[in-house]
């Protein structure tokens, strides 16, 4: 296990934020890490009760999400790579 900083882009938030994650975090844990410094401080949950997923940021905002149980290491996320934390319709 080692730590890594990614850039989290939480749906509806005005900021992109640096988020420390462990390489063995699952994507659900990454979601929690991204919500922690934002929701309740300057942002609301983008859709309370809805599931949030993680996907790589792309120009068209339509990349497939990483599997929820996939780890940061398995997703090969890099230092300061930007990820979306978004409301999933699934």
């Amino acid at each position: 296990m080692s730590s890594l900083a990614v850039i989290g882009r939480l749906e509806k938030d005005a900021h992109t934020r640096i988020i420390d994650v462990d390489t063995d975090f699952t994507m659900d844990q990454v979601v929690e890490a991204c919500l922690a410094p934002a929701v309740g401080y300057q942002a609301r949950h983008p859709k309370p009760g809805a599931m949030l997923r993680v996907r790589p940021t792309t120009d068209t905002d339509d990349a497939d999400p990483f599997p929820r149980s996939m780890t940061v290491a398995e997703a090969r996320l890099r230092h300061f790579q930007q990820i979306d934390i978004y409301v999933s319709d699934d």
């Binding site: 882009r9 749906e11 938030d13 005005a14």
Partner: peptide
């Protein structure tokens, strides 16, 4: 800081 409109238009991105 990398920021942009939040809310429903959600334009913040790096």
């Amino acid at each position: 800081p990398i920021s942009n409109k939040g809310g429903t238009v959600w334009q913040a991105r790096a």
